[in-house]
């Protein structure tokens, strides 16, 4: 769509630029919400920064270990700036572990912190999704609907835009839900349920998905598992209250 954005005299690649803006905006919103929940906003920025840097370094270390034969003869290339040489799932797990260790060290309530982070994560997903749409990171399935966009010679669903709209809707629901007093952790669980629901619903609009078994989409199967798990946790929290 618009792979490069002009910002004053600079021309920046849309996707990485909006991912960075999304991270910053997400942390800003989370810090604001943290203050409302009596958690110092600086903790949010610290967690965001440490998790991001730790996640990237951990993800790179994992990638190098997983491809150790490739790096054996050229070990210094493990320190190159090639951003694609990062194992994202493992990096995300390491980033999450860093956030948990930080919370424990500063005796922060994890459910309260998660509540503060949920709207910020949603905003970051919306802005990052817009970047993915503009940068044509992935493509939608073919459609004849009037709002279809032309990608690679065919009219297709603007699938990333659907996710952006879903994220904005989730953000509005989270904002509305906070008017009612809830148990610590509820906002985050609601976010997880709604976000997983949006992926389950909207993934069929993305072309060329990863599949398992008889052509089942991996994203949908994972989303359904998360939805069931979150509902089970919600039920348990309600029972223990």
């Amino acid at each position: 769509m618009t792979p490069f954005l002009s910002v004053g005299p600079l021309t920046l690649p849309s996707y990485p630029f909006l991912v960075i803006i999304g991270l910053w905006a997400g942390m800003w919103l989370a810090a604001k919400d943290a203050g409302r929940l009596k958690v110092e906003g600086d903790h949010v920025y610290n967690i965001g920064l440490y998790s991001l840097v730790g996640g990237l370094l951990g993800g790179r270390a994992w990638y190098v270990l997983a491809h150790r034969e490739s790096y054996a003869g050229v070990p210094l290339q493990a320190f190159s700036l090639t951003l694609n040489a990062v194992s994202l799932p493992e990096g995300a797990i390491i980033g999450l572990a860093i956030a948990l260790i930080y919370s424990k060290r500063y005796r922060l309530s994890i459910p309260t912190l998660a509540d503060a982070l949920a709207p910020g994560i949603t905003l970051a997903l919306a802005i990052g999704g817009l970047g993915a749409f503009l940068g044509s990171q992935t493509q939608g399935t073919p459609t004849a609907l009037p709002w279809g966009i032309v990608q690679f010679g065919e009219t297709r669903h603007p699938a990333h835009l659907y996710l952006v709209l879903a994220a904005l809707l989730i953000l509005a629901i989270l904002r509305a839900a906070r008017r009612k007093r809830q148990r610590p952790g509820f906002t985050f669980l609601l976010f997880a349920e709604l976000y997983a629901g949006s992926r389950l619903l909207l993934d069929p609009f993305f072309a060329l998905p990863a599949t398992i078994g008889a052509g089942f989409r991996v994203v949908q199967v994972a989303a359904l598992a998360v939805m069931v798990l979150v509902l089970a946790v919600m039920a348990r929290v309600e029972k223990s209250a």
């Binding site: 389950l200 619903l201 993934d203 069929p204 060329l208 998905p209 599949t211 008889a214 052509g215 089942f216 989409r217 949908q220 199967v221 989303a223 359904l224 939805m227 069931v228 509902l231 089970a232 919600m234 039920a235 309600e238 029972k239």
Partner: peptide
């Protein structure tokens, strides 16, 4: 009653979500 309500909700999500997954499955890559 609350536990039953949650179980019904989980079952509903499984049935509706599972049906959607089956309906929208992909042909071989």
């Amino acid at each position: 009653t609350g536990a039953v309500r949650w179980l019904v909700l989980i079952a509903l999500v499984l049935v509706v979500g599972g049906s959607w997954i089956v309906f929208s499955r992909e042909p071989q890559q």
